[in-house]
Amino acid sequence: MTELAATFKQQAVAQAYRHRPPYPDEVFERLLDLITDAPRRVLDIGAGEGALARPLAPRVEHVDAIDFSQPMVDAGKQRPGGDHPNLSWQVNPIETADLNGPYALVTAGASIHWMPWEQTFARIVPQLTPNAQLVVIEHGAVDEPWLGELIPIIERHSRKKNYDPKFDVVDAIVERGLLDLTGRVRTTPVSYPQTVAGYIERLHSTSSLARDLMPADEAASFDASVAEALRPYAKDGVLQLQIQAELSWGRPKLPG
């Protein structure tokens, strides 16, 4: 896991992140509804290039976006909203980051499974307002008709060989005694067009399929195989995706 996490420090992975679909607008509506305390400050852990932090910044008092990857933060600063005055970036792992609470909301978008949970929760809990919630957000395409052709290709090339599709990171954190789960909801799917080329680059933005993990001939073979699998489903080179997010939230607790 540590070796795979390090791929997010690769420049190519940070650049490929722009091909990931944005979070549906409903995600931000629900996040804002969960803020009940003042000041309306948000801590975004494992912020990456700021897919959550950048849209949130204009809607709250301040967002602290924390990520351990300099290339990710550099990419985020160049993306729309990356220079908003309500947004502060910091390159640090969350367990040693310089935090400036109290925070009325903590967000983690597809990132908390990379973190040492006990150290992370010991760091953030003292920085929370009385009713602050931690929200874990996963999102992506659903009901993809081409998965039957695509999954074997991914399995052949993925550097993560112990993937367990039944693993649920929120359930694992709850079982560890670090979160009192309050709610869970899926957003309404929204349409998102993406070119086949963009879809392939999105796959390369993941830790297990990063281009720098593959020899050049393997990367070329992967790209060609994925393109062939997707082509029958694309119209003029464009796929029509359905994007959905799942939000899970609760009150984080100190370890022990």
Rank of each mutant, 00 (worst) to 15 (best):
P55C: 04
H84I: 06
Q127I: 06
E144S: 10
D180M: 03
E49M: 12
E175W: 00
V136K: 01
V135G: 05
L128C: 11
R176T: 12
S88R: 13
G48C: 00
S111W: 01
K166V: 09
E175Q: 13
D74R: 08
G82T: 06
P93M: 01
L105R: 06
D143W: 04
D64W: 13
D98C: 00
I66Y: 11
R176A: 15
W146D: 10
P116M: 02
V106N: 05
F68V: 01
G48S: 00
F167T: 12
A47H: 05
T129E: 14
L87Q: 04
S111F: 01
D74V: 08
V170S: 04
I173V: 11
E149G: 13
P152S: 14
D143K: 13
D143G: 06
L181P: 10
G76F: 05
K77A: 15
Q127H: 12
P71M: 12
P102L: 07
W89M: 07
Q70M: 10
T107P: 11
I137H: 01
A122F: 03
V73G: 11
D168F: 05
L99W: 12
V60Q: 03
I124H: 05
I66M: 09
G148S: 13
F167N: 11
K161T: 14
A172W: 02
H139D: 07
H113D: 04
L99R: 14
A75G: 00
N131K: 15
D164I: 07
L99N: 13
P145K: 08
G76Y: 06
G109H: 05
I153M: 10
E175R: 09
P80E: 06
V169S: 11
A108Q: 00
A172R: 03
L178G: 13
P71D: 10
W117D: 02
S69V: 03
L178F: 13
P93H: 05
P80V: 09
I94T: 14
R159A: 08
A110C: 02
E95N: 11
L150D: 04
Y103T: 14
S88E: 10
T96N: 06
Q119W: 03
R79P: 11
R54L: 06
Q90R: 09
K166T: 15
L134P: 12
I153P: 13
G109F: 01
R79C: 09
G50E: 03
P165L: 11
G76H: 08
E149A: 15
G46D: 01
I94K: 08
D98F: 01
V91D: 08
N86K: 12
G140A: 08
D74P: 07
Q78K: 15
L134E: 09
L128E: 08
Q119C: 04
G82Q: 02
R59K: 05
E138F: 09
A132V: 08
W114A: 08
A108W: 03
G140I: 07
S69E: 03
G177F: 11
E138A: 09
E138T: 12
L178H: 12
H157W: 14
F121E: 13
G76T: 06
G82E: 00
A172E: 10
